[in-house]
Design a protein around this nucleic acid. Structure first.
Lengths: 192, 192
DNA sequence: TCTTCAACTTACTTACAGGTAAGTATATAA
DNA sequence: TTATATACTTACCTGTAAGTAAGTTGAAGA
């Protein structure tokens, strides 16, 4: 790979932003190529078809997830900062023009997806749930959090809530996000 | 209007199903006209452009909401069946091939929407929140539900959770829905 | 120096999107 | 009986989507 060209990375960045802004069917090759100053065929060179591109986005996103959770998954630690980190990340994404989350964007166009994409998305989600489940378990053990029911269900319900929150926030503004984060804290018996 | 023709209603029905299955940009006039055995131009006759069609879908959906909540909004009553009704409705929609909710479908393509559509969607959401807020208030007053924080925040967080749950359920199956409903019950201190 | 390869561009194709204008069949009203 | 409105169809338009095949360029290796 030429050291002076990072077209591939720029394509992924742009496509990622577009997908989280408009969904899978809401952007075209042109929307990527034009701002990057390349031709559509340049995208096809790096990603023969759209599914190859989507696959790269999921893998990239999965990598980000792994990097930011691996330490906690390996060594544990306080749970509260993990949860707050998720809130901060979510807020930041919304502020940076990525209003909807990847799983949500893919869920809309789920029938169009290839099995490979479905599986990659599935693995991403399972890792997300596993991480938050562990955060919930450890948080309850350490009495940082208080909740009834099993940790996995609680984790799934919080992820669902955040996913929905991002969509509601798009319609009603970012205040909604903070409101819902606060409700999650309240539900977990966090008082400060 | 001819009494023998219900093309307009059939178009709305089909478009509604398609939108909740594939999102705003995921279906075309052809997807509607072909199964109905009419031509694309027939749709344009009833709805000059796509936004007119979407507007009709929102209005139709809003009507359904009003019909199913008006009695409780006017006279109150037990809160628990209201919540369970929402769960049953959501599950039924998913089982009938409408995996995602309308607000979620519109949130993805939010930037494309006209102001008229945004406002209509906004009013629909506000009515939904108002209804569930009242359910939460009355439920807490009558000691059917137990939760901390204000009723409006709790209502918004539950709606967000259900919205997210529908998307997760698409990826991971309907079991996820029931799991999340159970967690909502648990969080509200419902034991039976 | 010649070859080779990566990383593109140019130029094209096919398919389909939303939309429109003009024509047609049927029912009703004057 | 004629006019008129409703509910369409036919035939078309423009724009854009994803995708492809063949050509170009510039750098690195033999």
């Amino acid at each position: 790979m030429s050291p002076t060209s990072n077209t591939r990375e720029q394509i992924i960045d742009k496509a990622f932003q577009l997908m989280l802004q408009r969904g899978l069917n809401g952007f075209s090759y042109r929307d990527i190529s034009e701002p990057l100053g390349v031709k559509n065929a340049a995208i096809h060179y790096h990603f023969p078809n759209k599914m190859d591109l989507i696959k790269a986005l999921i893998d990239e996103n999965h990598l980000v997830l792994r990097r930011s959770t691996s330490e906690f998954m390996a060594y544990g630690g306080p749970a509260r900062p993990q949860l707050e980190g998720l809130f901060a990340f979510t807020l930041n994404q919304c502020q940076c023009g990525r209003p909807i989350c990847m799983v949500g964007a893919l869920a809309i166009d789920y029938d169009d997806l290839t099995d490979e994409i479905k599986n990659a998305n599935d693995r991403f989600m399972k890792d997300s749930v596993n991480w938050l489940t562990r955060v919930m378990e450890i948080g309850r053990d350490q009495e940082e959090f208080h909740f009834d029911g099993d940790a996995a269900s609680k984790a799934v319900s919080i992820l669902a809530m955040i996913q929905g929150a991002r969509q509601l926030a798009r319609v009603h503004g970012l205040d909604y996000l903070e409101k819902i984060f606060d409700q999650i804290r309240t539900d977990l018996g966090i008082k400060d």
